[in-house]
């Protein structure tokens, strides 16, 4: 019964909430009001936007020494998670059989282990820093903690089910994934997508003022 629920209706429900929710949130942002800037532009807004979307991946050297922990742990977590999400063998197989109908070469087992260690280590450090640093503790909201813990639990259940011998462990992983998918559009996890418009808007603003950012 539970197996049917998790593999069937709940999975489709969470998938629907996720995709409709994300699209709705993005549309709400992109179709919100905005005023046209009446000042005469000095540079190109669109090239500024494009440049800023990519340039923000690398921190300015003036500030880098002060934010080393966030940058290193941040990259470890995000790259590790990205690799796990799209290149873990069970994920590739799952996507091929259930969603896409085609697959790609997954990463070898050792790479999976290394990627997940990066992701766990990075997320653990980021979350602990959030709790321990007085700035992040002051500005953090409940949402930030829920999102971090939920992501951690999803990764953990996935790794615990690595032996693929037990339906219960697989279902536990899938269930937490479904919770994450449902929570996603209404949380700060939306930054997965909204960092792009956010960087682009600011980049456009810099671009038309001719600022080298």
């Amino acid at each position: 019964m539970i197996e049917y629920l998790i593999d069937g209706p709940l999975w489709y429900f969470s998938l629907a909430v996720f995709s409709v929710g994300v699209l709705w949130q993005l549309a709400r942002i992109l179709f919100s009001a905005s005023k046209t800037d009446l000042s005469v532009a000095r540079g190109s807004a669109s090239s500024g936007a494009l440049r800023n979307v990519f340039s923000r991946f690398i921190p300015h050297h003036e500030i880098a020494p002060r934010i080393r922990v966030q940058v290193i742990a941040g990259y470890m977590f995000h790259l590790g998670l990205f690799a796990l999400l799209f290149f873990a063998a069970p994920h590739v197989l799952f996507l091929e059989q259930n969603l896409l109908g085609f697959g790609w070469t997954p990463m070898p087992h050792w790479a999976f282990i290394v990627a997940s260690q990066f992701a766990f280590f990075g997320l653990l450090i980021l979350w602990l820093r959030r709790m321990l640093n007085s700035v992040s503790r002051l500005i953090s909201t409940l949402d930030d903690h829920v999102a971090a813990i939920l992501t951690f639990v999803v990764m953990l259940t996935g790794c615990l089910a690595l032996l693929k011998g037990f339906t219960e462990l697989r279902l536990l992983h899938r269930f937490t994934v479904e919770l994450l998918l449902i929570y996603f559009p209404f949380s700060c996890l939306m930054h997965t997508f909204t960092f792009i418009p956010s960087r682009a808007f600011t980049g456009a603003w810099f671009g038309r003022r001719g600022i080298d950012a």
Binding site: I29, S32, V135, S136, I139, M190, S198
Partner: peptide, 12 residues
């Protein structure tokens, strides 16, 4: 709207 949706309170 996009700013608050993307801020993750990293404190940088």
């Amino acid at each position: 709207m996009s700013f608050f949706s993307s801020c993750v309170r990293c404190g940088i």
